[in-house]
Design a protein around this nucleic acid. Structure first.
Length: 176
DNA sequence: GAAGTGATATCCT
DNA sequence: GGATATCACTTCG
């Protein structure tokens, strides 16, 4: 997964990430659910507030991780899309356990960061080089469903959520 | 349906 | 420097 994979429209990246694998140490999980967060026009995106110390990663070069704490107790993992200087990121919402996650659930943004033991130290990390990395994964074939995003207050009807149709590892128990 | 939790942005001095 | 509102979640009723 080179940097050019991420250097394009956020929605294309969100869709293309389905089926790929996130690895960290001995742990690995296949991405089955993502959401696209756009730029200034997307009021649900942190980047809509402009360039701040918090959002500078989103405005930075593609192929990096954006990790933040939400509601005081849950971390969320995002991957930066779009060329350097253009805001856009993809929230990873659910993983299918592949290795090192036996007995753990990774269905949900907070749950997957806990299962993968992702920390805020990984904010800004380059996922094309690791230790947190996204790798291409041989997947036979799967259908993709597009639905509105979950759990947001603004732009809640925008169809920017991408899921592997029928996967039992999606968050919120739905199969899209 | 409601609560718990802490970092952040945006006010106000 | 300080106070307040907001938040892309999970768990327990």
């Amino acid at each position: 997964m080179g940097r050019n994979f991420y250097e394009r429209d956020t929605r294309l990246v969100a869709r293309a990430l389905l089926g790929q694998v996130v690895t960290l140490g001995a742990k690995a999980g296949r991405i089955v659910e993502t959401e696209a967060y756009l730029g200034l026009d997307d009021l649900a995106a942190h980047a809509s507030r402009g360039l701040t110390p918090r959002t500078k990663v989103i405005f930075g070069p593609p192929g990096h991780a954006y990790v933040y704490l939400i509601y005081g107790l849950h971390l969320c993992l995002n991957l930066i899309a779009e060329p350097d200087g253009v805001p856009g990121c993809v929230l990873i919402r659910a993983l299918e356990p592949v290795a090192g996650l036996d007995g753990l659930s990774a269905s949900g943004p907070g749950r997957l960061t806990e299962a993968m033991e992702i920390t805020r130290k990984l904010n800004g990390a380059d996922v094309t080089r690791g230790p947190l990395a996204v790798r291409a994964w041989p997947t036979p074939r799967f259908d993709i469903a597009v639905t509105p995003r979950i759990g947001i207050r603004h732009c809640a009807d925008w169809p920017l959520r991408y899921v592997v149709k029928g996967s039992p590892f999606l968050s919120k128990g739905g199969s899209g």
